[in-house]
Structure formats: structure tokens, C-alpha cells
Design a protein around this nucleic acid. Sequence first.
DNA 1: CACCAATGTTTGGTGCACAAATCCATTGTG
DNA 2: CACAATGGATTTGTGCACCAAACATTGGTG
Lengths: 168, 168
Amino acid sequence: MSGTRADAGATSDAARQEVDPLALESQVCFAITRASRGIVAAYRPVLEPLHLTHPQYLVMLALWQESPLSLKELSSRLALDPGTLSPLVKRLESTGYLERTRASEDERSLAIVLTDTGRALRERAQAVPGIMRERLGMDEDDVQALHAGMMKVVELAARSEQGGPAEI
Amino acid sequence: MSGTRADAGATSDAARQEVDPLALESQVCFAITRASRGIVAAYRPVLEPLHLTHPQYLVMLALWQESPLSLKELSSRLALDPGTLSPLVKRLESTGYLERTRASEDERSLAIVLTDTGRALRERAQAVPGIMRERLGMDEDDVQALHAGMMKVVELAARSEQGGPAEI
DNA sequence: CACCAATGTTTGGTGCACAAATCCATTGTG
DNA sequence: CACAATGGATTTGTGCACCAAACATTGGTG
């Protein structure tokens, strides 16, 4: 790492004149989607013994923090479409980690609650973050820095939501 | 039981003792998938006038760099499964940006070539990187730094591919 | 009380993404 | 030449992910 931007001064004119702005390798969007797919792929063998996919793991994390959750609340915490979560939660129900009941005070909304099995799974899941840090070869500080950077990107992307269809 | 690994060395002891390692908000994997989805979402309104989805845009970038490409080559450059690309490329053919012919010297492999329309699209696409930088409010250095960080994550994730199913 | 708007969930449609199985042209090897 | 083995592409199956439309329950309001 260690920024080599020593002689950053004035864009080092000649240096970057040949760069194609449409070059695939230089696209941040490509790098970030690859990184995301790579991380999810790295989780796969670790989550597999728990019978969880990565998005399912995130749902379980949310439920371990607070258990009766509505679909809407879950959707907002995970920043995922309700239409995405609905079948996903059903799959988690069919593997036995949660139950989908209706909230007594408002029959419109779901009350998604952990089963005993789902609650018990948390013990085994405790090991996941450590295993992943080790597998990826990151220390606590790397994790912190990466997390901060990603949250900044999330922020930027969210802020840019306003812009309607661009005219090109 | 002995889990809590005490106040290990330089972990700023008291400061982070209450942190739940399974807290959703602290998961890097969550941050990175959110960031990725956010970025792709930010591209959507910009690519829509070009009738391209984000993965399709990446395919076009690859083809603008080198035009007759086989599916295998494309798959390796984009780090995407051939099974993912096959239908995607067909969709790009049906929108008229490319043609899928067979390589004359080896009838097994595809020769994916740009059509005139596909080649012409590059002109309009020139504007995309600038528009996106502006929409996201990033300057050239931000982009460089983010790109470098993501490539490092790609690297780490790729390196960790070895590890078989973890036993938890 | 009946109707209407708001809220939460579900459904349908399109498009990734990966893994495994299949198909087919090519390239050995006997 | 015949016949395996290989290698590239496609298909199939499962599971996200988003959008828009349909649906149902609530909660007003005339």
C-alpha cells in the first residue's frame, strides 16, 4: 500500500496521457463488483456447513440482534428489497431457523421469529468472523479500514440516488 | 468458555469490549455487498439510455478493447462464469450490439464481434466515467485509492480460494 | 357504517451469478 | 481410421436482486 503519490504535484502530465478512460481494468465499478463477488465466494465454504448462503447469513445476523422483526424492518436494515427478502425468508423458514407468524397487533405485518435451532446456530456462527479474517489474511486494522472505506462508498452511492436518467 | 481472549495487547482495552463480533453493522462483508449494489444502482440511470445493464456495460468495455473475443476469453477477463455470460451475450446480440459467430479455425469457440452499432456506442459511452465520477462526487484521487483498495481485496479473496469447506 | 387511502406483503417479470451436467468439435493415441 | 479424452459453449437448477403491480389489512372520514 504506502501511497506512492510522492510527486503528485500536477497530475504528472505526460505520465497518464495514454490512459483509456474506458479501459476495463481501470474501472472502479468493475473492481468493486469483483471484490464483492470474491468476498461472497470466500464466505461460501465457511457458511455451507451452517446451511446458509451469504444473504441468509446477513438475515440471521439481523435476527440475532433483535428477534421479532417485520419484513419491512428487515428490508430496511439490510437495504434489500422486500421482494428479495420474502422468498429468502421463506427458505430460512423451510430450513428451520425461523418462523413467519403475523403480528398480533397488526395482521398486515410479519413477525419473523427465531426458532430454537435458529437461536442455537448463533453459537457456531461466533466462529465465522475470526475464520474469515484468517482466511483472507486480514488483521483487525485492515478490517476497520476496509469497513470505513466501504461505508463511505455506500454513503456516496446513496447520496447520488437523486439523479434521474442521465441524458448522454 | 475461555473465549474472551482478555485485553490483548493493543486492542485499546476498554474501548471495544462491548462490541458484538456478529453485529450486522460491523460486518465488512455486509458493507462491501451494500457498496457494490449501491454502485451498480448508481450506474443504472446512466446506462439505461444506452440500453445496457451494468454487467453488459462491462462486456462492452472488454469488446471495445479487443473485438473478436471468445466466450472463454471474455469469461476470464471479467472473472465471470461462462454459464453467466452465455445468455448475457445473447441478450447483447438481440439488442444489436454484437454478433455471435463461430471461429473459423476452431468451430468450438465463439467469435464475438461488435456490430457497427456496438462500435458506435463507444462514442456515447465515453461520457460515462466522467458522469459517474461527478454523480458520486469523487475526484481522480478518490477513484485511484478506491480502485487500489478493491484490487487488494480481489487479491486476498482470490488467494483464499484454496481453503476447502471449513469445519465449524 | 361504508368507502377510501395508507401500509405491508406477495407475485410476476427480467436479469445476474454460480455449479453441475450436457453437447459437440477437436485432438491425441493405439 | 476408430475411439477415447479434452476443451469450449450451452443448458438446467437454485438463489439473489430489483421493479412494478396486485392483494390484504388497517385506519380514517363522510
